[in-house]
Amino acid sequence: MTSLAGFLLASLALVAVPGPNLIYIVTRSVRDGRRAGLVSALGVETGTLVHVLLAVGGLAALVTDHPLAFTVLRYAGAGYLAQLGVRTLVRCPSPAGEGQPEPARRRLLRVYGDAVLVNLLNPKVVLFFLAFLPQFVPTGLSAGDTRARMLVLGAVFLTVALALDLCYALLGAALTSRLRGTPRGQRRLSYAVGGVYLALAALVFV
């Protein structure tokens, strides 16, 4: 129980630290509103679930054990973030509001898919789960018990992360609701969000 409580506190502290996943959720909710923010949170944590399963199955270690594969993952993640930034700037709302808006369902599916990829292509998340989960697994367990323990810890982390992500999404949407109500405000938000994505792409290599 003590170990689980320690893992819970550590998870809270780690999730609260701003990173690409959290910043992506906040920027989505800031620019596109509450629904987009909530959907992006679900997408990010879908990626987290995949990371947990890869770590439990030992597949994530294969990436870190091969420098070329890890380098490719880093470049892919940076490239995708840069592509998001450029796409946001290019699709910035025009002053007169020309063009047909993207259907809501398609837009939310895009938001979800982007969120999953932002998480999956973040090499620091791979390293995080490889280094973090094993610290809270007792030594001397069988291989099956070790995997079961890591799955439980992964579920706890996923629950904590999703709860905090949803809170950040709601907060970001609430704080910028007035700006999204005007074309000029939407353009400003789009410029800001696009710049954030491009900055995140650069920070992948830091």
Rank of each mutant, 00 (worst) to 15 (best):
V44S: 13
P20T: 04
L84Q: 00
Y75S: 10
P18K: 10
Y24N: 12
L127A: 13
P138G: 03
A174Q: 14
Y191H: 11
P95T: 01
L198W: 06
F136T: 02
L179H: 03
V30L: 12
L81A: 00
L121I: 05
L59V: 11
T146Q: 10
T182R: 11
E98C: 08
S190M: 02
S177F: 15
L89R: 10
L9P: 06
A13N: 14
L158Y: 10
T139C: 07
M1L: 13
T182W: 06
G85Y: 03
M150W: 00
A148S: 12
A143V: 12
A61I: 09
L54C: 10
P103V: 09
P138M: 00
S94L: 14
A155M: 06
V204H: 10
V118Q: 00
V196L: 10
L22A: 15
R34Y: 09
T64S: 14
R74Y: 08
V152H: 05
R184T: 15
Y24P: 12
D165T: 06
V196Q: 04
V86S: 02
A148I: 05
I23W: 02
R34F: 11
A5L: 15
R188I: 09
P95H: 06
R87W: 07
T64H: 12
A173F: 04
A131W: 01
F70R: 14
L109E: 08
Y191R: 10
G43K: 00
F157N: 08
L81I: 03
G19I: 14
A36L: 08
A173Y: 02
N122W: 00
L8F: 13
A173I: 05
G77V: 03
R184P: 04
S142I: 07
R87N: 13
G172D: 00
V196C: 12
V86G: 02
A16N: 10
